[in-house]
């Protein structure tokens, strides 16, 4: 047993001689890495605020809250309302598609579909969610718009309707999968109870499952709105860059994201008010999606406590 003694001794000596620095250095290293994410947020907020500030001191508020947006004119005007209008209208159209269809898909998947159907459909939904938005943009511009033109002859080659619809299609999987998660979280006994009393599946869905899962469903809608507001390429390609303040969905409108893309890829020189306006719009966009995200978190946090 001489070998055995040496193993014991080696181990003990090794432990004694080990400085154990890894348990001091590694936490610090990991904390440093984790701080990068925090730094990124600070970086975003800082860059947006600094340059947006220059915009806000250069442009009077009465001009900002006007409907006249003409950044490249000789006598430029920076009314933000056309952009907000364009953003809200495209988002509204998207939600009119994604809301009902996504919810219906969620109800189907969680209440009606057999396990086999579910297992086929869900990955396909995931595929749909994984397609890059640029592809949807191309699809909206080269397929959906010409198709809609056959129905609405007055439709412009660039219009807000087509990207709105395609954006809606893009976020169907988001609404469907988050709502379905919320519905599946409703305890099985509640459903069985209602079914046992002779309710049809539809009645169970409408009267038991949806009321119980309502906060999760709402959260999915809020996140979907946030996605639609922040979506860039579809609207940039298919909605164009008209800065008119209008409610006519057959016309071209620019969204906040579209404005940022147009301006950076164009030739706004650094230091001009036009350049800073980019950051003001960016800041607004950031705050909006941030608030929406916090609301969604708040709602879904509340609903998790229910069971």
């Amino acid at each position: 047993m001489k070998d055995n003694i040496s193993v014991r001794e080696t181990i003990q000596n090794n432990i004694k001689n080990k400085k154990n620095i890894t348990d001091k250095i590694m936490p610090a290293f990991f904390l440093l890495m984790a701080s990068i994410s925090v730094l990124t947020t600070f970086g975003i907020v800082l860059t947006l605020i600094t340059d947006a500030y220059r915009f806000f001191i250069a442009v009077p508020f009465s001009e900002i809250f006007s409907t006249k947006l003409a950044p490249l004119n000789a006598n430029p005007s920076f009314g933000i309302l056309p952009l907000i209008n364009g953003t809200l209208i495209s988002t509204l159209i998207a939600m009119l598609v994604a809301g009902p269809v996504g919810l219906a898909a969620a109800i189907y998947l969680s209440q009606f579909a057999s396990e086999r159907v579910r297992r086929t459909l869900k990955p396909i939904m995931e595929v749909l969610a994984g397609i890059p938005t640029i592809v949807y943009g191309f699809f909206a511009y080269s397929f959906v718009t010409p198709l809609l033109m056959k129905i609405i002859p007055d439709l412009g080659a660039k219009n807000v309707l087509s990207p709105g619809i395609v954006m809606g299609i893009m976020i169907i999987p988001l609404v469907a999968s988050l709502s379905e998660d919320a519905m599946n979280a409703v305890p099985e006994i509640m459903r069985e109870g209602a079914l046992g009393l002779g309710s049809t599946r539809l009645e169970v869905a409408l009267k038991v499952v949806i009321p119980s899962a309502i906060s999760g469903i709402l959260a999915s809608f809020v996140l979907a709105i946030s996605r639609a507001v922040g979506e860039t390429m579809i609207v940039t390609i298919a909605s164009g860059s008209s800065k008119n303040f209008t409610f006519d969905i057959t016309q071209s409108m620019q969204t906040m994201t579209g404005y940022i893309v147009e301006f950076t890829s164009g030739d706004a020189a650094t230091g001009t008010t036009g350049y800073y306006s980019l950051y003001a719009v960016g800041l607004l966009l950031f705050l909006f999606t941030m608030v929406m995200n916090l609301i969604a978190q708040y709602i879904s946090h509340k609903y998790r406590e229910e069971y």
Binding site: A34, S35, S37, V38, T40, T41, G43, I44, T47, L48, D51, L223, S226, V229, G230, E231, T232, T257, I260, V261, T264, L278, Y279, G282, L285, F286, T289, M290, M292, N293, L294, Q297
Partner: peptide, 22 residues
């Protein structure tokens, strides 16, 4: 840090473009 990361995930990609640009 957790809230930070989940918020960061929902920031529109175009904003990251602005960050990168700056």
């Amino acid at each position: 840090i957790k809230i930070n990361i989940s918020n960061l995930a929902s920031v529109p990609s175009v904003i990251f473009g602005l960050l990168g640009l700056t």
